[in-house]
Amino acid sequence: MAKRNPNISGNAYALTILAPIKNGYTEEQIAYADIVRCRLQDWNNQDYSPMTQVPQTYLCRYYVLDDVYTESLPGADPRSRWLDLLTALPFGGIGNKLRVGMLPKEDHLQSRYLVFSCNFHGGPEGDLDGYLRGMWQAISGQIKDIWGFCYGFEEVDNADKFIAYMKKCQLPAALFFVGSNDDPLPEQLKALYLKQEFANFAVANQGLDAAALRANFKAFIERVQPNDVNGPTWPAGKYTV
């Protein structure tokens, strides 16, 4: 029996990428990780995210993981709750030393990571190669711009190398939850377009006699073409129909 892919739920795929950013600085002493951050920030100022061009992308995000956090506030476990009482012990700072000694350990990452987390339609087999190929074909310029400061990206200059690189940076999901539907994105967008248009049609065509309503409905169907996903639709990433 084939092993279950933890990144797949139905037809949806959870892609998690941690790409290590080089620990270096530009001539102006700006950390590479901060350049990556600035370039991603610039995407927010564009009218459309570059990701609108990447087929089958439902939702995705980018961020930079600078470091991990050290927990110091008390948790629900009795040990951490009662630890603060150690400061009440007599003999000066002994209690406090004990308390500090029992705090969780401090961890720090050796590199900063570019995190790319994406949910896309991959089909029941989870076509990751197809998705990444489509991503490279659509926005290879922006990919080079963002990933260019990452370890191991120097050799990436075509779709195959990009796919291989991304797989090296991929992490498996321990649990992937899908609360939406997992149809292909063009199907979802067409359905949302129909929902929006039909809601407006229903409001605008109240109180008509049967013949007039029927004529308007016929014209409506001809306009919206419900079975044609390539016809009128809600463009990806757009805030209006």
Binding site: R37, L40, Q41, W43, N44, S49, M51, T52, T57, Y58, L59, C60, R61, Y62, Y63, V64, L65, V115, G179, S180, N181, D183, L185, Q188, L189, K190, A191, L192, L194, K195, F198, P226, N227, W234, A236, G237, K238, Y239
Partner: peptide, 29 residues
């Protein structure tokens, strides 16, 4: 951790809208 760039293919749709839209499309056709 704060997200730097976040993208949704259907920014005006809640998860319930995406599910409802499928019902609308099926019933309408």
């Amino acid at each position: 951790i704060e997200t730097i760039h976040y993208y949704s293919a259907y920014p005006l749709a809640a998860a319930n809208d995406v599910k409802a839209a499928k019902q609308v499309k099926t019933a309408l056709t």
